[in-house]
Every structure is written in C-alpha cells, then in structure tokens.
Design a protein around this nucleic acid. Structure first.
Length: 213
DNA sequence: AACCAGGAGACAT
DNA sequence: ATGTCTCATGGT
C-alpha cells in the first residue's frame, strides 16, 4: 500500500533531488529555519547568511543573537529561530564525530538540543546523515489521513513507526518519499476552486482520488 | 483580506 | 500524556 503510493508519486513527479542544500550543515540550518515556514523564505535567509560568510557553526555561534535574528527576518519567528540556530551550532561544536553514533542514539542526541523536535531531528537524520528514518510532516498527516490509511491524531512516533514498518528501510527511498509528498502538496489545487486530483491545504476538502485506488 | 507556510517550547490540565 | 498559546514575515 505505502509502496504503491510511493511509486505512483514517483512516476508522476520524478526524482526530487532533496535536500536543496550544498552541505550537511546547510541542511541542518534549513531544517530549523523551515519550521512552520515556506521554503522560499528560508532560501532568502540562508542567502543572507551566505553573503555575510556566516554559513558555518563557528561564525553563527560567535554572533550576537539579535544580530543573527536580523539575517533571519524573512523566515518569521526570527528571535526564536536565532536562539535555536545557536543551540544547534553550539551542539555541533561540542559534539564532533556525531556520524559515528548509531541512528537511535544520534536521534536522542538531536532531540536534546533546544529547538530540535521530532520532525527537525528526522530531517537532519535523513537528509544530512542519510539515515533511514521516515519524516512525518503536516502534509503526510493530511494526505494519509484523507486516504484513510493513517490516523491524523496519532502521535508523531506512532506515525513514523507505521511508515517505517510498512516500507523497506532505504534512506534513498525515504528521501524521495518525503520530498514527493511535499511536492504533491505544493503542486496541486492552486488556482481552481475545484480540482481533479487533490489538495493538501488545511481547509480544502478535495481528496486525492488518483491515489486512492 | 484572510489564510497559511516542509514545528517546537512553555505551560496548564 | 494531551490541549492551547505563542512566535512573525511574506505568498496567494
């Protein structure tokens, strides 16, 4: 079932080449900045940091928090995210050799960092460390909830385990799967009030008929 | 002009 | 354990 939907999305949209970033560190920065935020805004904030030559842990750690926040304005929540970004960079500086940890241990370590919750941790595990973890986001809940395959109200961990149990533990495939779900959500049902395929916006009632069969 | 975006922490119940 | 508030800019 989960396999079938993956293939259907992949056949329709093709490979997504995620995560859109140059380095693992840039993946982590993007993962924090994109929390409840559109990616186009994140790109501008990361651009700001790159122009100022700040796209490394040492530089961000050394910055004054309110100065960092100014570079982050486009993403919203800039004060909170400045604090979270510095918590991340300090953690990375204090913990070299994270890649040598087992996935479960690494996940626990990431979750202990201020501002890194379950989804952000899994973004980092999957897209920065290529670990086979399934990322559950709001779109995933809506899509599979509307398909009647998952309980929208289930906890993050339960949903994640449900996906991981139903699929081959393949980091590359998990990578594409999450990216395809996001692409699917971004693509469909924009202009027309009624669409033939589906919509994943909060208040849109249209189902994903094409994925149901 | 609302509505929403690739969430997480603090706090109360 | 579970529910509600808050954080905030910029698109459509």
């Amino acid at each position: 079932m989960l396999e079938r939907i993956y293939r259907q999305l992949f056949d329709h949209y093709g490979p997504q080449h995620w995560w859109p970033a140059e380095t693992p560190f840039e993946v982590m920065v993007g993962a924090v900045l994109t929390q409840n935020t559109a990616w186009t805004h994140v790109e501008r904030a990361i651009d700001n940091l790159r122009q100022a030559d700040l796209l490394n842990p040492a530089a961000i750690t050394a910055l004054d928090q309110s100065d960092l926040a100014d570079y982050l304005r486009p993403v919203g929540y800039f004060n909170i995210k400045a604090k979270r970004l510095q918590a991340l960079t300090r953690f990375l500086i204090d913990h070299p050799q994270l890649n040598s940890l087992e996935t479960d241990e690494l996940r626990q370590q990431l979750l202990s960092v201020h501002g890194i919750g379950p989804e952000t941790a899994d973004d980092i595990l999957l897209y920065a460390y290529q670990r086979p973890v399934f990322v559950v986001d709001a779109y995933t809940r809506r899509l599979f909830g509307r398909l009647g395959l998952m309980d929208r109200e289930a906890s993050y961990e339960n949903l994640r385990h449900a996906f991981e149990a139903g699929l081959k533990q393949d980091a590359q495939m998990f990578n594409e799967y999450h990216a395809l779900i996001v692409m699917h959500a971004k693509t469909v049902c924009r202009a027309k009030p009624v669409c033939d395929n589906c919509c994943l916006r909060r208040r849109c009632a249209y189902f994903c008929e094409a994925l149901k069969a």
